[in-house]
Simulated scan of single mutants.
Amino acid sequence: MTPAPAPLVVFDLDGTLLDTHTDLVESLNHTIAALGLEPVTYDDLTHLVGQGARVMIERACRLRGHPLSADTLPPLVERFVAHYAGNMPGHTQPYPGLIAAMDLLKSGGYRLAVCTNKMESLARGLLEKLGLTGYFDAITGGDTFEYRKPDARHLTSTIERAGGDVSRTVMVGDSINDIAVAKNAGVPSIAVPFGYSDVPVNTLGPDHIITHFDELTTELVERLLGEYAEKVAV
């Protein structure tokens, strides 16, 4: 009898694995300062993040009444990337309990991966600066493929790179893109309420919510995989 594939837990990055808000705000404000725009705040951030740097800059400029033309965006993206990459890891830290939870999952034979709409180079660079890349069997960003969350292919391609199986995968995230990509790919989702969602995560329809990473256990993952398999079979 062929053994079941090792379970795979796929994480979003910003607002899920890592508290990046201070550095995102600083780099974003550095970027829009070139246009003479008023700085954004943490309260603005929940409406700006989730689709990568380009969209975040566009949204910030629109928020400040300064819509961008196609030719003015690329130099602003370069300005953001240079500032953000040059200051890594800055104030960014893993959320409480994350390292212990990942150690627990890895010791149980689980695979781990990152699926983020952040540029892959920035995601990898940040995780490397924090000494976390060794935990992950795959790290994919918003520019890794021709598609990104909530497109199901971003998640399914990440699963493939990590050597996982869709039927044995759980997605962990903090926003609508994470919950939606899980639904689109046909995998159960776990939401965290401490990230950057602009609405309460319970309104997004996740399969489960954890308020601290000490709740992310092998028992929880196996239960969710079993419940989801039963639901799909009905």
Rank of each mutant, 00 (worst) to 15 (best):
H83A: 05
L13T: 02
P7D: 06
G50F: 01
T72Q: 14
I139V: 15
V49K: 07
M119I: 00
L45V: 12
K118L: 06
A4Y: 00
A85F: 00
M88P: 06
P94G: 11
A113T: 05
Q51H: 14
Y42R: 15
L73Q: 05
A113N: 08
A85I: 01
G86Q: 12
P39N: 09
H47W: 14
Q93N: 04
M119F: 12
V25E: 01
S107H: 13
D23V: 12
E120D: 10
R54H: 04
T31S: 05
G97W: 06
G36S: 10
G15Y: 01
L112V: 09
T140W: 04
L112F: 07
D103C: 00
H83G: 00
H91R: 14
Y84A: 09
L132Q: 04
I32A: 03
L17G: 03
I99R: 14
E78H: 11
G90D: 10
L105I: 08
P67H: 11
G15V: 03
P96L: 12
T116A: 03
L45E: 11
G15S: 07
A101F: 03
S69I: 04
E120A: 11
V40T: 15
E58Q: 15
E58P: 00
D43E: 15
L68A: 03
V25K: 00
D14W: 02
G141S: 09
L28M: 15
N29P: 07
C115M: 12
Y95M: 08
H66T: 08
P74F: 07
L76Y: 11
K118S: 04
L68D: 07
A82D: 13
T92Y: 01
D14E: 09
L17V: 08
R64S: 08
V81G: 00
T22M: 07
C115A: 11
H30K: 03
R124F: 05
A70Q: 13
H91F: 08
L45H: 07
G52T: 05
A53Q: 04
L37M: 07
L122P: 06
H21R: 15
G109T: 07
D44C: 13
M102V: 00
L18N: 01
T133R: 13
A34K: 13
I32H: 01
A82Q: 13
C115Y: 06
K118A: 02
L76W: 10
L35A: 01
H30S: 07
E128R: 14
L63I: 06
L127I: 04
S121Y: 02
D14L: 08
G86Y: 02
A101E: 01
L28C: 12
G36K: 05
P94Y: 10
T46H: 13
E38F: 00
D14H: 06
L112T: 11
R62H: 13
M88I: 09
T72W: 00
L76Q: 09
M88R: 14
T140Q: 04
G90L: 12
T41E: 13
L127V: 07
G36E: 08
V114K: 05
F80P: 01
L13M: 15
H21C: 12
L28S: 03
F136S: 05
K106E: 02
C61M: 06
E38R: 15
A101V: 07
N87S: 14
S107T: 13
E120H: 10
D43K: 14
T140S: 12
S27Y: 02
T22S: 12
N117Y: 03
